[in-house]
């Protein structure tokens, strides 16, 4: 465990009769990105809050950047940056004032704090909005400011708790690029997410948690093997073509293809070549389709495979209520 920037063993946290974490083990080698994947209420945020010293575990131990989170929380706090929906900025202050305040609290001298804030504002494309109150920022700008705020002290380890939840896809790309930039500098990142796609795009390894327990760990490729890889989806232009398209799909993938659900025919594929083969085959037969895509299994499918029930079903009542709202 010498080269682990984050190492946790048996982290447990209970709130009354609810068990938020039921003995979680995590290991993140230095300079890598761990994606912690799970539905709402799985315990992702609780785990991050414990590792970031905001919460004490009921049992278990953890080190971050070589410092014990219980024994030496101040040293941990010196080594980490935290971005989440909770650890944010002061909305009444401007972006610049926020960054300068955090720099001052991290013992930068006044001129150093000013310089560091200016540097981060430029880096995150917030120059024009630097002196406006954070309250007036758009969702994407707020997320960039949150991220900048967690980088003020040039931390060795960064926690990103659902960094793109609630962002539209183009802003999501923005955040992804920033995370990639960080990792290219050697920063260790622990990222929690509800999106398999996000974990796949950013993480070197993925830990899947559910109901406070680790239910799978591996690289994105390993996980996809377990879950059954990607699937090909085709939406026929005319109902009369459904049978023909099913035939094409089963021939190319070598597996039987079921009835369409909500107008979509779905077939598991092992490699991208099969996608091309389907497209070519359909074109040569002149079968029109309105949609054809290759997609990763959804979180729900991952959970279905790993736990035998969907993410929805295994998530807490709050998560379900949120989903319905």
């Amino acid at each position: 465990m010498t080269n682990h920037a984050i190492h946790a063993e048996g982290l447990t946290k209970r709130y009354g009769t609810t068990t938020a974490l039921d003995g979680i083990d995590l290991a993140v080698p230095e300079g890598t990105v761990l994606g912690v994947l799970g539905p709402n209420g799985a315990g992702k945020t609780t785990a991050v809050r414990i590792l970031a010293t905001l919460l004490r575990p009921d049992a278990g131990r953890a080190t971050v950047a070589g410092h014990d989170v219980l024994g030496d929380p101040d040293a941990v706090r010196r080594s980490i940056g935290l971005t989440g929906q909770y650890a944010s900025v002061d909305e009444q202050l401007s972006g610049r004032e926020n960054l300068e305040l955090f720099a001052r609290l991290l013992d930068f001298t006044r001129p150093d704090a000013r310089a560091r804030a200016a540097e981060l504002l430029a880096q995150f494309g917030l120059d024009d909005a630097a002196d406006r109150r954070a309250k007036t920022y758009s969702g994407g700008m707020r997320r960039r400011l949150d991220l900048a705020a967690s980088l003020v002290g040039r931390p060795a380890v960064i926690f990103l708790d659902e960094p793109t939840t609630g962002l539209d896809p183009s802003k999501r790309d923005d955040v992804w690029n920033m995370v990639r930039l960080l990792t290219s500098e050697g920063t260790t990142v622990l990222l929690t997410t509800q999106y398999l796609e996000e974990a796949d795009a950013l993480a070197d390894a993925i830990t899947v948690i559910d109901l406070g327990r680790v239910i799978a760990h591996g690289t994105a490729a390993e996980l996809k093997q377990v879950v059954g890889g990607r699937s090909l989806q085709v939406r026929p232009a005319h109902l009369r073509d459904v049978a023909d398209i099913r035939a094409v799909l089963s021939r190319v993938t070598g597996r039987p293809v079921g009835e369409p659900t909500r107008g979509l025919l779905t077939a598991p594929v092992e490699d991208e070549q099969q996608f091309t083969n389907v497209v070519v085959d359909l074109a040569s037969r002149g079968i029109p389709v309105t949609e054809i895509s290759l997609s990763l299994p959804s979180l729900d499918e991952v959970f279905f495979t790993l736990t035998g029930q969907g993410a929805q079903a295994s998530a807490t009542a709050t998560a379900t209520a949120k989903e319905l709202a």
Binding site: A52, T53, L54, D74, A75, R77, R78, I80, L82, G84, Q85, Y86, A87, S88, V89, D90, E91, F102, L105, L106, A149, S150
Partner: peptide
């Protein structure tokens, strides 16, 4: 508000 959690995460 979130800023107090950030204060808590600072040394």
């Amino acid at each position: 508000e979130g800023v107090f959690d950030r204060f808590r995460s600072l040394p």
